[in-house]
Structures are given as C-alpha cells and as structure tokens.
Design a protein around this nucleic acid. Structure first.
Lengths: 260, 260
DNA sequence: CTAATAGTGTCTGTTAGACATTATCCT
DNA sequence: AGGATAATGTCTAACAGACACTATTAG
C-alpha cells in the first residue's frame, strides 16, 4: 500500500462510496432462484436489483452483507449452516451514474423454507426470480420472454454468483446449505441438477456423496413417507467435512450424465 | 443496492478510501517469491508491505492495480500473457489506523526475467522475498528466523494470494505466466513444485500437460543445450487453452508425488 | 399382485501412479 | 564409452459411467 504523504489528511483522498450486494440463491420448485428487489427510485426506477446497500463506516463487510440481507428481505434469523461468502468487487467508474460506488459482491445460499419470508422492510417489492428467466445465458432451456431489466451491472454480478455456486458445488459441501435437515440423497441431487442445469446419474451420485468422509451423517430415525409409494429414503444431516476430494465431475448445462 | 434517498447528496454517505494491493508472485532460484516494498512512513514504518495504493476517482480497479504495480516496482512493460486477477477485498474496520480503507486485493504472476527490475520510482525500497521466509506456514520447510514484519493485514493477503495461485494451478493454465517462452516441460514442473512446495512425478507430469489440448504448443526449432549434458529438452510455447480439465491432482506442501 | 422409488452389486473404460526402457545429448 | 537428462511404453490400482438386480413402500 502506498505511504501516506506528509501531512496526512483523509479528505484529500478520492471519496468513494462502498456498498455490498448479495446474490441470494435458493432452489425452489426445482429451479435455481435469486432474490431481487424492485427499485422504487432513480436511477433504474422499476428495474430489479440485488439486495444490498451502503456499508457503515465502522462496519465489517461481512456484517454489512448480513444486515442488508435482513433489512431488505425480512429474513430475521439465518440457519446455522448459513453460507455467505465474498464473490468479487465491482468498481468500474460509471457503474452507478450518481457517484463512484465500489460494490463488494457476495453470494449467499438458503434452503427453501427459511427463504420464504421475502417482503422487504422498506417499501420496495422483493421476490424470487428463476435464474433461467433472467436471460443471462446460464441454462440450456432459458425462457427469456419475460426477462426483467436488471439495474446497474447486477446482471453480471448474478451471473458471477451463479458461476461461483456452480464451481463450488464441485469441491465444497455447500449443497447442504440449500436443503433443510434432515434430507435425502435425492434432495441433494436435485440441488446439483437445478444449479448445474443438467441431469446426474442417480446411483453414481449416491456413491460419490457417501464416499466422501463426513459429507453427510446418516440418521437412525429413517423411514419417511414418499409421494406415490416406493421405498422410503434414508435421512441424513450435514457432516463436518467442507471439502469434496476428489471433486465432483462438473456437467455442462443441458447435458446429462455423460458429459464427454 | 439500496435506493438513493430523496435529495441525494454524495457527502452524506460514509467516506471510504479505496485502495488496491497486489500480491506479485514469481519463481526465482526455485523458490516462490513475492514482491514487497519497505514502508518509509508511518504507520508501520520499516515494515514490509504489498505494492499498491489509492484508486483514482475515475480509474478502474484493474487499471489502478497495473498503474500501482508499474509505479512501485519500476516494471514499465508487462508481457503479453501477463496475469492479473482480483483476489478478494479486505475491509475490516481498523485495518488501517488512519482511516477506513477498503483494499481490493489482486494476484499477479510474472516470469523471472521481466521480474528483474524492482527499484520503485518512489524512494521506498522494493525487493523479492521468498514466501517460505515470511513465516506464514505455507511451506513444510520454512525458515522463519529472519521473517520480516508485514504491515497492515498484508500477511493475510499474501497467504490468500498464494493459496489462490496454488488452487488455480490445478485447473487453469497459468503456469505459462510464470515462465519465459520458449520453455521446457521441466520448466513448468519446477513452477508447480515451487508453488506447491512439493515434488511431482516427472513422467506423469509430462503426460498430463501434453494430454490437455492447447495447453502447450511444441516448437520445431527444438534442441537446446542442457547444463551438464543429456538429451536436450523439447521447447514449447503457451497454447490457447485456459482451463485444465480434468484438473491436476494437488499435492500437499512437503509431500511427494504419492499424496494419499 | 403391480407400480414406484431407494439402494446394492458389478462390469468396463479411463486415468493417475509407478517403474522400466529407449533416445539423445555432453565430456 | 559412460554419465546425464528427455521421452516413451506399460503395468496396476482407483474410480466414474453404466446397467442389472434387490429392497421396501403405496395402492
């Protein structure tokens, strides 16, 4: 970092505004969805934007992301395994027409139940959008007919966030952040398929998950009703492991289990 | 992002300073080294810090990183395959005792030749430090006796940068950013070994590199003198591929080729 | 019983690890 | 020739893809 010149004066330095934006992802109805809020004021009035806002002067970036998420989505309590990580920082001059704003993007993952409350505390409307409906070219079978306009560079941030989630599913046990406990192996596979936009081979998926030590912990109190009959699936909870090694083989969107 | 209140006034928002810090890595003398500059003024006077500095008000983050790198290291021209990417952003309150500074960390990779000029344009001293001498616990055989004091949270940033480089060697063709062209397969392996801090199996490494389409392009004008005799190694240049799929198997620091 | 879903067993093709062998230079 | 390094060939173990088969429920 550059040395401070003699006679250091904070006001001499270019004044930036620093914000956090959060790509909050969940899987509902078998679709990867992202939470967006409708902008009430200019600029980009009526466009949809990521939840986020200004970082307080004495606030850590991570804390700011949690606070903004709570304020704008109405989610008051986050689950134990709540996953929130930094994505990257967006700071191109002119990305906000009002002033120079540097935004620290984040990715957060939630299971569908806790993801239910979505009415923002401020008047602006908030709702889940299937990522495939945003016209970002991330899925093979996108329906781009009713794609909303995204504010600022938020289309880029959403795309980056989804790519991060997709990549991380390969080598980290973050699936468990997408599901409620207890869960079945099928629940986990559905997450992978929804996020990757591709079908996975059921038996090999099971073998892979169970072969990773500490990925999932089997529950004794098994036996769950299944819709339409069939052998009830065993139940699991998340284990202590955070890494998947060797990693999953990624499947390209639209592909089935044979990717090559 | 939060809406701007009515009567928007930039001065109302918390004033942040935004800086870039660059973890500039190279491999010289078989060791992974990072460029550090000695701080001339307070705070952390006499400590060693990453090259970096304040982002101009109309400057892109990436451009700021390139500019600061040039200013503080004296490197005027960067090679074609110059690799510079964002790492993550460090913004804990109090990380700079003077004011609230949010720093966007970057990682840059250079080959040893272009990495030679290192005298900074400002008076501060700049030199290469072997990463293993910094006492960061990243290598199995660290010599922490003469470890320098690192300013701010730069020890964390260096560690994060090295981890990023290590991880990226697994799935991206960034080795070629560490070497001068043309290069031999041995040159590439030495980079992997230096960055990972472990020995790799020579024959299998060659096979892996050559099996990735577009990783390296063989040169016809082969035949190079070898120190001490022996069959001259074939020469290669970097290809168009950017990804390595399937990825390399990572080897833990200190380990040899059999990692499990 | 049949239908449906969960879970197991096993064959096969690919690939990384290991090591032997050949190729090409230097002194 | 002898030593040294580069490059190739090949055996083996691990593992992903694929598919057949068994297990357990609902109706």
């Amino acid at each position: 970092m550059a040395d401070a010149p003699a006679g250091y004066d904070a006001s001499k330095y270019p004044p930036f505004a620093v914000t956090v934006d959060i790509v909050l992802l969940t899987v509902r109805d078998g679709m990867l969805q992202v939470l967006l809020v409708e902008r009430a004021g200019e600029p980009y009035q009526g466009s949809w934007a990521l939840p986020g806002g200004f970082v307080d002067i004495n606030e850590d970036l991570h804390d700011a992301a949690v606070r903004e998420l709570a304020e704008e989505t109405g989610i008051d309590r986050f689950p134990a395994g709540f996953h929130l990580e930094q994505l990257r920082t967006y700071g191109a001059p002119g990305r906000d027409p009002r002033m120079r704003v540097v935004s620290v993007g984040h990715v957060a993952l939630l299971p569908p139940t806790v993801a239910d409350p979505k009415a923002g505390s401020d008047a602006s409307q908030a709702r889940w959008w299937p990522v495939a409906d945003l016209g970002l070219g991330l899925f093979a079978d996108e329906d781009t007919s009713d794609a909303p306009t995204l504010a600022f560079d938020h289309a880029t941030i959403v795309a980056d966030g989804v790519q991060r989630a997709r990549a991380k599913l390969e080598y980290a046990t973050i699936v468990t952040s997408f599901v409620d406990e207890p869960f079945t192996i099928l629940n986990l596979r559905r997450i992978y398929e929804s996020v990757w936009g591709a079908r996975l081979h059921s038996e090999n998926f099971r073998r892979k998950v169970l072969s990773i030590d500490g990925f999932v912990e089997p529950q004794d109190a098994t036996g769950v009703p299944t819709s339409g009959g069939g052998r009830p699936a065993r139940l699991y909870r998340a284990g202590d492991a955070t890494e998947i090694y060797p990693p999953f083989q990624r499947v390209e969107p639209g592909g089935d289990q044979s990717w090559r």
